[in-house]
């Protein structure tokens, strides 16, 4: 991967990867930092990246692992997350409906949340989601079905009265 290829990948996919990671972890500025760091690692491994079929998927997975690592450290060590790429930048205000959706997503089990985000937000076909999460296609389908059902309930709770429920 040369500079032009990297720059093209970065400019084309950075924002959507940030949104996807935000949907997965629920923290927008943490998501953007992890995505930037994942791109930096992609450049550091540019020779390896040339043989990767889906560089964007590689960056997404790396960013997600970075985010999980930061979560783990914050949970177990009680320290602030590393700011690997630089100083915190001012983040734009996020649409309220997005906040509610992300809040609902965070209440899903991790596997369901990951499947939902990859399929519905990253727009990956089911078989590609299966490859990315390392699970059989049938399992991914089941996670999607259960995740959507749970998400519908959670969104209804967020807006009571919007969905009629039997007594």
């Amino acid at each position: 991967m040369d500079e032009d290829e990297f720059d093209a990948l970065y400019n084309a996919s950075y924002r959507r990867l940030c949104a996807q990671l935000y949907a997965m972890i629920g923290d927008f500025d943490e998501a953007s930092e992890c995505v930037q760091e994942a791109f930096a690692r992609a450049w550091a491994h540019r020779r390896k990246m040339s043989s990767v079929d889906y560089p964007e998927a590689w960056v997404r997975t790396t960013a997600y692992r970075l985010a999980v690592g930061r979560w783990r450290r914050k949970k177990y060590a009680g320290r602030a997350a590393d700011r690997a790429v630089g100083a915190r930048t001012e983040m734009p205000a996020i649409d309220e409906s997005h906040v509610a959706l992300v809040a609902a997503l965070r209440q899903l089990p991790e596997a369901q949340r990951q499947a939902i985000v990859l399929h519905h937000i990253a727009d990956l076909p089911v078989h590609q989601v299966a490859v990315e999460v390392g699970a059989p296609t049938g399992t991914v389908k089941a996670r999607l079905a259960r995740g959507r059902a749970a998400l519908a309930e959670l969104l209804a709770e967020d807006n009571p009265g919007a969905v009629w429920k039997e007594a």
Binding site: R15, R16, C18, A19, M91, P92, H120
Partner: peptide, 8 residues
């Protein structure tokens, strides 16, 4: 959400 991706 996908269509109206928050800008970072």
């Amino acid at each position: 959400f996908r269509a109206n991706t928050p800008g970072a």
